[in-house]
């Protein structure tokens, strides 16, 4: 862990320990709801997403995000994120993914690195409780200096947009959430090489049911695809993948936490000599996400 990462982690941990906690909440780990913070409300989040196992070798990575969100009005909120990655892989010369004779993600890396930051805004057009069907728009821009998959250094920019739907049932005891997303990214590796670009549309959907006071059980899934314009190449379809899994959420007066496990159910093979029916170059066999939030 380098000094910058240690400082960021310590600062965020101290903030969490020193301040009394409140709550706005994500009922699911990946699919978000349409509600926004009220005007003047503020919230801190900590995200930890574990990515485990590729096609070969030993591969694990954790994506870390610390977020601060503020309600500009009763319908519009803004957020700032600090992003970091921890990689722990031993992929050898043949690589953890890709063709056997031309492996991807090679060598070993055991390191935690601060990568960059994101800025986000969310605007609620329709309230799920006043208008029956909630509708919100979301935009996010990210600057990254670390490749999320390999941990290599470079310069990346990302734009992400979402249309968010939320439908409550049973007086709000059951919630159905859906997000239509599109993501555009650029990445230029450090030390030369041209910039590559990608565009990834995605659809997420899930339900959460409050089975006891404060406790929700849920399930969600998503399908995404990526169109890639590699350095010195031209636009081409790269891959698609499908993930799904269960979710458990606790929401109290002061804080909330959501734990989601998702496995890759299907995807396009990442190389011709791999017929596992999963895409294991840009994604992994499973993900586990813990999100914790608390309001000020």
């Amino acid at each position: 862990m380098n000094s910058l990462t240690r400082l960021a982690t310590t600062t965020f941990a101290s903030l969490m320990l020193a301040t009394p906690v409140l709550a706005d909440e994500n009922l699911l780990g990946y699919t978000i709801g349409a509600e926004t913070l009220p005007k003047g409300g503020a919230e801190a989040y900590l995200w930890i997403t574990h990515h485990g196992d590729k096609r070969r070798g030993s591969y694990a990575a954790q994506y870390l995000r610390a977020e601060y969100e503020y309600g500009l009005s009763d319908r519009t909120s803004v957020s700032a994120y600090l992003n970091a990655y921890r990689h722990a892989y031993d992929c050898g010369e043949e690589g953890c993914a890709g063709p056997l004779d031309e492996g991807e993600i090679t060598g070993s890396l055991h390191k935690t690195q601060l990568s960059g930051f994101s800025l986000e805004t969310k605007h609620m057009l329709l309230s799920p409780y006043k208008d029956d069907l909630g509708l919100a728009l979301y935009g996010e821009v990210t600057y990254d200096t670390i490749d999320s998959i390999t941990g290599e250094k470079g310069t990346g920019f990302e734009l992400e947009g979402k249309v968010i739907f939320q439908k409550p049932y049973m007086d709000g005891q059951l919630q159905w959430l859906s997000n239509i997303e599109i993501e555009a990214e650029s990445w230029k590796p450090e030390g030369g090489g041209n910039t590559e670009y990608s565009i990834a549309p995605r659809f997420r959907t899930g339900v959460a049911y409050r089975f006891a006071p404060n406790w929700f059980v849920g399930a969600e899934g998503w399908i995404d695809a990526e169109i890639l314009n590699p350095a010195n190449g031209s636009w081409e379809f790269d891959h698609w993948d499908l993930f799904a899994g269960p979710s458990l959420h606790y929401g109290g007066k002061d804080w909330w936490a959501t734990l989601t496990w998702a496995t890759q159910l299907a995807g396009s093979d990442e190389s011709n000599d791999n017929s596992t029916g999963r895409h294991l170059a840009d994604h992994e066999k499973y993900e586990v996400r813990l999100k914790i939030g608390y309001n000020f």
């Binding site: 930890i48 030993s58 954790q62 586990v288």
Partner: peptide, 15 residues
């Protein structure tokens, strides 16, 4: 789950 960093859970557990 291999190579999960327990250190990173500390702020979460504190909550």
């Amino acid at each position: 789950m291999r190579d999960f960093a327990p250190l990173l859970i500390i702020p979460a557990a504190a909550l």
